[in-house]
Design a protein around this nucleic acid. Structure first.
Length: 230
DNA sequence: CTCCGGATCCTCT
DNA sequence: GAGGATCCGGAGG
């Protein structure tokens, strides 16, 4: 390697997040725990994606934890990793702080932040948020939105507003073109409850792995999983 | 406000 | 070949 870059003092190695022991590494350590422990800390965090067409930032108001086949006490049939690793879900088994993005219903993208230590499948689905920067661009990406609070009020909406697709799956959410900033003070008024729209989630209706900020207008109202008859 | 169905294609069985 | 970690619009109360 040749680090001597003419005309660039300091050769850029101290750029934020790239330095060993820097902010990104501290954040990654926080994320390297069980998704259910990480969830309350991620609420209120701001995620930014500097897309080709510009930046959009979302303040996260609702997340949902998904586990892997490691947790025999709490089997998670709603998780993509329930039956083990596949090409699609491999990212969830990797190190924390990366994006796991999947495509569903033939038209929607959904974004997760991978949690847990390397080798353990765990992730938080970003279910809802409030656009705090780049609202005009978010509206351009989601022209059917009727109100500001609807721009990212749902997992597929949030992914669309941020300009995230499966092409971003596996990318590091803590480094450019992404950024994740925890709130200065952890959120208070965090509530938890059953999942939304996940069928067959574990043999019990009490599956309290969804977390949200109490009273936030962008949080989706609870709806039971759709029962598909035939 | 609530309920309901169609859209649309990737992923795993 | 089936079904999905969803969204949206339309119909009805």
């Amino acid at each position: 390697m040749n680090n001597a870059t003419p005309g660039v003092p300091g050769n850029g190695l101290t750029a934020g997040g790239l330095t060993a022991g820097g902010p990104a590494d501290e954040l990654r350590q926080l994320l390297s725990r069980d998704a259910r422990q990480v969830a309350p800390q991620l609420l209120g965090a701001v995620m930014t994606h500097e897309g080709r067409d510009g930046p959009v930032s979302v303040r996260i108001t609702e997340v949902e934890a998904y586990l892997g086949p490691h947790d025999s006490l709490h089997p998670d049939p709603g998780s993509h990793t329930f039956r083990g690793a596949t090409a699609r879900n491999a990212v969830m088994f990797g190190p924390a702080g990366h994006l796991y993005v999947y495509f569903t219903y033939g038209m929607h993208h959904c974004a997760n932040i991978v949690c847990g230590p390397d080798g353990v499948a765990s992730a938080l689905l970003l279910r809802a948020g409030e656009i705090v920067a780049g609202e005009p661009l978010a509206l351009k990406r989601r022209p059917t939105s009727k109100a500001s609070k609807d721009l990212a009020s749902g997992p597929a909406r949030l992914a669309t507003a941020l300009g995230i697709t499966t092409a971003d799956s596996g990318r590091d959410a803590l480094l450019a073109p992404f950024r994740l900033e925890l709130p200065a003070v952890p959120a208070v008024d965090v509530l938890s409850g059953p999942r939304v729209g996940v069928s067959g989630a574990g043999g019990t209706d009490e599956y309290p792995w969804r977390f949200w900020l109490r009273g936030d207008p962008t949080v989706s109202r609870y709806k039971a999983a759709k029962v598909r008859l035939k």
